[in-house]
Amino acid sequence: MHPAFSVIFLTTFIGVGQGLFLALFTSESYAAVKLLPLQSHQFYAMGSAVSLIFLGLGLLASFFHLGHPERAWRAAAMWRTSWLSREVIVLPIVMGLVFVYGMSHFYGWELKTFGLKTPVQGDLTLLVGALGTVATFGLFVCTGMIYACIRFLQEWANPLTVINYILLGGASGFVLATALASIMAPALVQFFGVWSIIITALAFVFRLASLIRNAGLRSKSSVQSAIGVSHNKIVQKSPGMMGGSFNTREYFHGAPMWLFRSVKWIFLLLVFPLPIMLISIGMAQASTLLLMLAFVVQYLGLIPERWFFFAQANHPQNIYYQTIG
């Protein structure tokens, strides 16, 4: 497939936003059961704002993918059958919940503000946070399933696709949380840092698993099944056009083989070992700069990662467009 930058930015940005929110709420729920010191409301409010910015940037990027962005609201219609439609519905829900979560922290709202008394401290943010967590995972599943549900894009049609969206988004969000904590909540740096390393390492395992799986894939379609002629030697002489078409632009990545291959090594380096190294050193030296750098490096790695994810998918229609003649 031809990787579209709008979709690359959409999926990576919302991944960061979602991961960051999950990180915030994880630390808050640990604090609720007194496993971590409770942080100031400002930290959570600020974190939510950053998360919202990333989610918003992702939403903005998605509009550049549409031919008719002014009709985007129509995309909520077919949630019964379309994962894309479900994503279109869940993304604003996540944004709304993150917003309410941030506002509740900012103004210190509790359920008793609205006349409901509970014995739990910070009950409202815990409630909204829990809802937000469910919605966030829902959004990851929607995003992953958009790709995983197309059965003939064999590179994508696998649970690993969804798992990788969750893990890669989660990793980038936790790394960002580590960097933010080093500025506003130093007590949480170790907590976020260790989780970032664990999630990044897990993401590495699963991304590697999908790379290995894809390397061994055999295409179910062949030129024989595509045109229904059973002969071992079939050569295309003309695709029915001279100057290319949507079919030759949308489904081929068009990059030379050496670039395609090196992108894989670049992202494998930038997304996994480098950030882990930077976080470890950053934690040891309590250096905000290094932790920030870890996030930037990992995010810069996620762009080629997503590019490769699209480029690697080999659409069966390509069988019909093997030669331009």
Partner: peptide, 13 residues
Amino acid sequence: IGCKYCSWACPYG
């Protein structure tokens, strides 16, 4: 809305 998703989901191009 021109999202092109359906074109990805047609194996025949």
